[in-house]
Nucleic acid binder design. Structure first.
Lengths: 332, 332
DNA sequence: AATGTTTGCACAATCGATTGAGCAAGGTGC
DNA sequence: GCACCTTGCTCAATCGATTGTGCAAACATT
């Protein structure tokens, strides 16, 4: 059975079944009724395949077929629940629709993003989803040249349809919540600080708009130095705050759970006044709720985003428009 | 250039370069010097390939070659930092070694684990790594029949080499720490409760051994009802505790960050006595440090595990032994 | 000039599965 | 008994790249 290490092929099975390779192939890929193979032979072949531990060579099969059913996705990181859930749900949904998902993690590195995209196209993906990509348009252009559908998730692009969260509204609502809680809990009116992210990034820019508008609604001005979108790491957030010793009450809008790690570190190291600080975070983490001072988190609706995304997969001639998915704000 | 949607092949390039497909192939895969193709032709072909946006068809290439350089990994979930880091680091290390990583997430579903493993073998992976798999031996047997190397990570198996954390020592040390802190912070001696995981799971069993031995060292008996390894979800942990209203001081050994979510929820909902509770968790989360009552977390040494793992990849005739990697205990 | 060597490439088989076309045997209708 | 259909398969081309073999031309050697 497994005497020799080589994989069984349909030719091996054909010999054993005393049938032709094409008959074996059609039995194994389920087209045997269409091809008028007798039930008797089909069962014989299937039994032999089972006994021999036959496994389809996907490379050979895909080479010949026109549809691959492979859907590719690139993701920046697995270091937060948001991208983790995206990857997990994407795989589950793809499988439930009979597709084969391939997800690869590109570390927020633009070159790696592009290289990985090329590799996935080489694997004949039918659709390539760029999640949170630095330069989605470069990937979209490459896909277009190769005749592969491109879609953007989380961060939008001009050259492919995009499905993203409504960052503006989510941030505006979160800002309003933090301001309200600052007033009710601390008797303090604002303005808040904005920590984390990068202004060149579409989502951070949209969130900052929401942040500013929520202040405007209350007639509040935000001084420039309150905006500290200095990057995506915990350390960057910590660096932004490390010399800040609040006189009295303070509120902070935290732009990601990674930034939150830095903020909480700063908060926990303050010698005094920690009870006079309120913050909220864009993106959710199950432990966030238990962090002292945290008044709420924005949960992006991953399921809904992916549902919309999967409706686009396989559709020809789509407009390159951006679909906004509302977020859920959880108050603590 | 990209007028028609079809992908360019080496045959298209051959026509444009007025050369043979085999010459084009060897230029593009770097064997042209070995095959005595002139530098002049090589440069011409490379330029044309660039202009035409040529991309290798991996299926065709792999079908013909003997080595695929693909390494596959199955992972249960992306909902915690541990598996997230494993996936991310695995991909990064594989790439740095010139391999192509394919990671797929199997939701702790034994059937899906096996199906995904078969699919990856169908994609001609050279090595398949089962991470935290429910039934690694079934996968190993399948791999063996197909002549594919199998390795286990995080959870051991009998039929393939395994690289796992030293769960026993990690748990023993964590238990000792919690007991020590219960004594110093609360003046209480134990015994602790053990929450989360499943006793049928090797790692939980090993951790429970460590937990028991740490108690034994101090001459402490642990009553059976203190062991509540009732599953891997936050809800299961919460269910274990929800009717528990501690009289006075209490300490808890939490068996995973997912279980910790449930424990913290219970803790935060107690009406009184929360300051008399200490706990520690096997596995690390960056927010764990800031949770009130948390005295320490065990960090599994993902980097070291993967380094050992990568040394095994490609080695023939390995013993099916288990390599234990020490954990790092962080005290808060 | 005859022979040997090197250079530079092309030819054709091959990997394993898929699929349109075709064909022999058996059955049906008149 | 002949024409026609159905059944149940087989044949052979094909997908795109790789690779062992072969061969003509250029060059070198004696």
């Amino acid at each position: 059975m497994d005497k020799d290490k080589k994989k069984k092929t349909i030719y091996d099975l054909a010999v054993l079944a005393e049938a032709s390779p094409s008959a074996v192939s059609s039995v194994l890929n389920g087209t045997w009724e269409k091809r008028r193979i007798s039930k008797k032979l089909a069962e014989k072949v299937m039994k032999i395949a089972e006994n021999q531990g036959y496994n389809l060579n996907a490379q050979a099969s895909l080479l010949r077929r026109d549809k691959s059913n492979i859907v590719g996705m690139i993701v920046p990181k697995y270091d937060n629940r948001y991208f983790g859930e995206i990857a997990e749900q994407f795989e589950a949904m793809a499988r439930s629709k009979g597709m084969f998902p391939v997800v690869t993690c590109t570390q927020r590195d633009p070159e790696l993003e592009f290289e990985a995209a090329k590799e996935l196209v080489g694997y004949q993906v039918e659709c390539l989803i760029s999640t949170g990509a630095t330069d989605p348009d470069r990937i979209a252009a490459f896909c277009k040249a190769a005749g592969v559908q491109a879609l953007n998730l989380d961060l939008p692009g001009k050259d492919a349809p995009s499905v993203i969260s409504d960052n503006y509204a989510g941030a505006r609502d979160l800002t309003s919540l933090i301001l309200r809680r600052c007033r009710s809990d601390l008797g303090w009116e604002g303005p808040l600080r904005f920590i984390g992210g990068r202004l060149s990034d579409h989502n951070t820019a949209a969130r900052l708009d929401g942040f500013m508008d929520a202040h405007k609604e209350l007639g509040l001005k935000v001084p420039n130095e309150n905006i500290q979108a200095s990057g995506y790491s915990a350390k960057a957030a910590w660096d932004s705050l490390k010399d800040f010793r609040p006189f009295g009450p303070t509120g902070i809008f935290v732009n990601s759970t990674i930034s939150l790690e830095g903020v909480v570190r700063w908060h926990s190291q303050l010698s005094e006044g920690t009870e006079n600080i309120r913050f909220g975070c864009f993106d959710r983490d199950p432990f966030g709720k238990f962090l002292p001072g945290n008044v709420g988190m924005v949960e992006q609706d991953v399921l809904q985003m992916l549902e919309v995304l999967f409706e686009l997969i396989g559709q020809p001639n789509l407009e390159n428009k951006v679909t906004l998915i509302p977020c859920n704000l959880e108050e603590f």
